[in-house]
Design a protein around this nucleic acid. Structure first.
Lengths: 213, 213
DNA sequence: GTCTATATTGAGATAGAC
DNA sequence: GTCTATCTCAATATAGAC
């Protein structure tokens, strides 16, 4: 044998890719401040100058790591919004797309989650908020369509949106802290059914409302 | 003037209390690994040996900080379970107690949240899970009572529980990342109404179900 | 591009005076 | 109990050879 050929057969192959993969796992399992560049390069099988060559710093590799999945998520919800169907179907698809994206990038999602909801740990600023906001806007938009066509009651769409977002979030959170006991896609659909029934419009709900006022 | 009298007039007064307060704010705003003991003692107006005297280490002050609120939370939900009323009322009270407790200890809640759902950041292990599990058990217990007395449909209580927990969590998360735009107690009550309507039993829902099968 | 070797800073923790 | 002074080690980052 000549020297060990690692290119192609590896998860990433090149040094840059191995560094990104290593950083993702370590940031995800120990946090940003809790991870050292020694560990990152050690797990990637290279030395420190390699990291400082490809990325300019610890902050640099962190930022490079975040950008991809965030852009991907935005793209996926935009294309999910183009699909057709009832409001219930479209909302379910939107939520499941978000959940699938989350599970696909579970490692990075964990560190994003902990920095978005928790302390920044000294990590450089990343605008998670605008992504979250865009998702909420999409949910509200479909809810309003559902109200217009009579699928949902004519009530506060913000409240409805938060309830829907809560269901998706709780499925994600369960995936983070108790993967065994996860709700999964089917669980999300069952939670959404409960919520949709709770905000249902149409005959029964309409008469009930007229009676109530 | 003699030397500045700080006792009593301070938030905490004694050195130990000032150290705890300082650590709470710093862990909350910078994470466990992102906070240094120099910062903790600096903000508390004392020097390092004082911290190592009262607590044995950085891990020690962190653990002392977590224990109180966690025990308090457990106590509050147990006493909330003793109160009476309809299942809807009891569930709402349970959720609002949890939310109130969260808001009351917002600083610590932030760091708990980020370590429970995210990477441990090198912080020593704390059993957040059993507290969360106990809350979930309580929700399920009241849901089952609601099914027995006809308030709720006879369906999967786990799905119902997750939907309820999702609503509470989303209110907490909003408090963490966008305090201005918070849903608050009233928002939780409105979300719960949606969910309760979605799982409602009684006359209408009962006939609907008999028809559906 | 990737290494060895090292600079520099600041981390957690402690000895010992008062 | 609280301080000054200091230990030890590991952190991020870089210089410069190959």
């Amino acid at each position: 044998m000549a020297r060990p050929v690692r290119k192609g057969a590896e998860t990433e192959g090149d040094v840059r890719g191995r560094l990104l993969g290593s950083a993702a796992e370590l940031f995800s399992s120990k946090g940003y401040a809790g991870t050292t560049v020694r560990e990152i390069v050690g797990r990637a099988g290279v030395t420190k100058p390699a990291l400082y060559y490809y990325f300019r710093s610890k902050e640099g590799i962190y930022l490079d790591l975040m950008r991809g999945p965030l852009q991907g998520f935005l793209g996926h919800i935009e294309s999910a919004m183009k699909e057709t169907g009832t409001a219930r179907e479209r909302l379910a698809r939107l939520c499941l797309h978000a959940y699938d994206d989350f599970v696909r990038n579970l490692s990075l999602a964990r560190i994003m989650f902990s920095i978005y909801y928790g302390p920044p740990q000294g990590a450089p600023y990343v605008d998670f908020d605008s992504v979250q906001l865009r998702f909420q806007e999409c949910v509200i938009q479909v809810l309003k369509e559902g109200i217009r066509n009579g699928e949902f009651r004519r009530e506060d769409t913000t409240d409805m949106m938060w309830t829907v977002v809560g269901a998706v979030n709780v499925a994600m959170e369960l995936e983070l802290c108790r993967p065994g006991q996860r709700i999964g896609r089917e669980g999300i659909e069952r939670m959404l059914k409960i919520i949709f029934d709770g905000i249902a419009g149409g005959r029964a709900a309409a008469t009930e409302r007229r009676r109530g006022r």
